[in-house]
Design a protein around this nucleic acid. Sequence first.
DNA 1: TGTTAGTTCGCACTCTTTGCAGATTGACAA
DNA 2: TTGTCAATCTGCAAAGAGTGCGAACTAACA
Lengths: 147, 147
Amino acid sequence: MKSPAELTETFRANGLKVTPQRQLLFGLMHGNTVHPTAEALFAEASARMPGISLRTVYQTLTDLASMGELRLIDVGTGATRFDPNTDDHHHVVCSSCGEVRDVYVAGSDRLKVDGLDGFRIEEASILFSGTCVTCASDTVSRASARG
Amino acid sequence: MKSPAELTETFRANGLKVTPQRQLLFGLMHGNTVHPTAEALFAEASARMPGISLRTVYQTLTDLASMGELRLIDVGTGATRFDPNTDDHHHVVCSSCGEVRDVYVAGSDRLKVDGLDGFRIEEASILFSGTCVTCASDTVSRASARG
DNA sequence: TGTTAGTTCGCACTCTTTGCAGATTGACAA
DNA sequence: TTGTCAATCTGCAAAGAGTGCGAACTAACA
Ligand SMILES: [Mn+2]
Ligand SMILES: [Mn+2]
Ligand SMILES: [Zn+2]
Ligand SMILES: [Zn+2]
């Protein structure tokens, strides 16, 4: 995703207005690596700008996505997650706490796929699931507390 | 997924009853390759057994899934899809019509993943998206009709 | 045939996201 | 600065996908 300053120009160049709500969200998403949900962003935004609406958060996020500045990620935990990282990358989700991290997979664009039968592939997304370090050590602590 | 006859035994062996609704759903899912949604199955089931409830379809499907007989697939088109194919395989979804097909990816269990940072991976699922043969030829037809 | 634990079904309700419309305001020009 | 007006914001209703609950029902077994 571009920087807030660059987005300001891009928005105006496209006939879109740069409102305080949008500027706030530009800032909250820039460099954000946690893959937040709309609700999570709404909570952060509300702390800094009481009165901002969830509707506006959704609006701005989908605007950014349709401009290619944001990727929408579905890790199967219910709500869509928003990702300012537009590199070619994939994700791993902790099945215990839901944390999502970026991972880079070598050769993910030249996988050998069988059974296509004429289907033309345009994109591949890999979702790993497992256990994050925090949840792994929590499990260990609980086990030793028991035993 | 096991055959309807085998499932009948398995269910009874686990203290679960084999009702007409369940038998119908066993039959509808066995060998089914279309990755139907609960609603789609409900429509098929209703045609053969008027009065069956959507609630029961969901119930039976999640029972089968928790017994490992069915996989739940999320291809990002809204509703969960149910898959009796328990082989190690992946999916491709047509971004135009939503059709889902099985694909087999060589070496999908030994991908080189960078950025894990302690995260322990237990599973990988690859979702390809693209255009199915039907939608591809539809596009061609429309183009030649225009031009 | 009786007993009873497991099922079915309808309905209310949650969660996430979108549609709508009136009130508001950013951007640009005079 | 001020005016204009399209774009935006907000609140609320509503849609789509599931799930929790409980009264009525029934498969399984003695
Ligand atoms: Mn990411
Ligand atoms: Mn499949
Ligand atoms: Zn975790
Ligand atoms: Zn298609």
